[in-house]
Write a protein that binds this DNA or RNA. Structure first.
Length: 261
DNA sequence: ATGGTTGGGGGCCAA
């Protein structure tokens, strides 16, 4: 059984102490990070190796984006994709020893205005997910995709379906495209495999709130999906909500799957 | 309708 975590860490260097605490508490085999916000030459490789991860793949850039996979399981191979014509570091993939492909994505947030003619970032986000779909169609199986998809697809993936209907992350064009991606690989949404669709489920709470826990205006932006042939291998799913109250937290909390590889 | 906070990096931009 392998425990795999996906977490938008919002600066890998700033949050090394939280990462250490997470590793101590959860003892994961693999951690996929997004928004490392560090160029490769300042990536804290030795500190992460010291946390027990002998195998680390990373692809970063200065200030923005950046992804990494920390693993106790060896990699048979690793690679990155450039998506939607961008140089952004938003994807990294490894083939885990045993043959399962693990893909880690940081989907663009898409800016504030949900209009492709007024907001190039929103257009980029939609095209990014469309290109993921084209990629997914040609994927060899079995595979796991994780990451900050920056889209909350279901009604109860947001605190208010009505109030967020025109807010980027929960708009119809985004959800339509995410559903197309999901259908292209017949992907299993692991969170909703374990937790009923009618139950509220969030992985992100804005910093711009006096009391995130009391207002509880969350969104489920972080996802773990597996190919159909891995569904019977799923053991558990969890969202580490309490980590949002740790000192100097990310605005995202880790999502966790246990799966037989 | 607006603003609220955070991180990186040294300007504001992105989230």
């Amino acid at each position: 059984m392998a425990k795999i975590i996906s977490w938008n860490i919002n600066s890998v260097r700033l949050r090394l102490p939280l990462l250490a605490k997470l590793v101590t508490q959860q003892k994961p085999d693999v951690i996929c990070l997004q928004e490392t916000k560090a160029n490769d030459d300042v990536f804290p490789l030795s500190a992460l190796t010291d946390l027990g991860f002998a195998h680390i793949a990373f692809s970063g850039q200065k200030s923005y984006n950046g992804v990494a996979i920390l693993s106790k399981i060896p990699f048979a191979s690793q690679r990155v994709m450039q998506i939607a014509g961008s140089q952004d570091k938003r994807h990294i993939a490894v083939t885990l020893e045993g043959g399962v492909e693990l893909h880690n994505f940081y989907v663009p947030a898409g800016g504030d205005i949900p209009d492709v003619t007024l907001n190039p970032a929103y257009d980029f986000k939609l095209r990014f997910v469309e290109e993921m779909t084209a990629w997914s169609n040609n994927l060899r199986k079995p595979a796991i995709i994780v990451g900050d998809f920056n889209i909350a697809p279901f009604e109860h993936d947001v605190w208010s379906h009505k109030q967020l209907a025109n807010v980027v992350s929960h708009t119809e064009p985004e959800i339509t495209r995410l559903n197309a991606l999901k259908a292209s690989g017949n992907w299993c949404d692991v969170a909703r495999h374990f937790v009923d669709e009618q139950q509220k489920l969030y992985s992100w709470w804005s910093y711009r709130n006096k009391d995130w826990e009391k207002s509880n205006r969350g969104r489920r932006l972080d996802h773990i999906w597996v190919t159909p042939n891995l569904v019977s291998n799923l053991q558990s799913f969890d969202i580490l909500k309490e980590m949002r109250n740790w000192e100097s937290p990310s605005d995202h909390v880790p999502v966790i799957v246990e799966i037989k590889l």
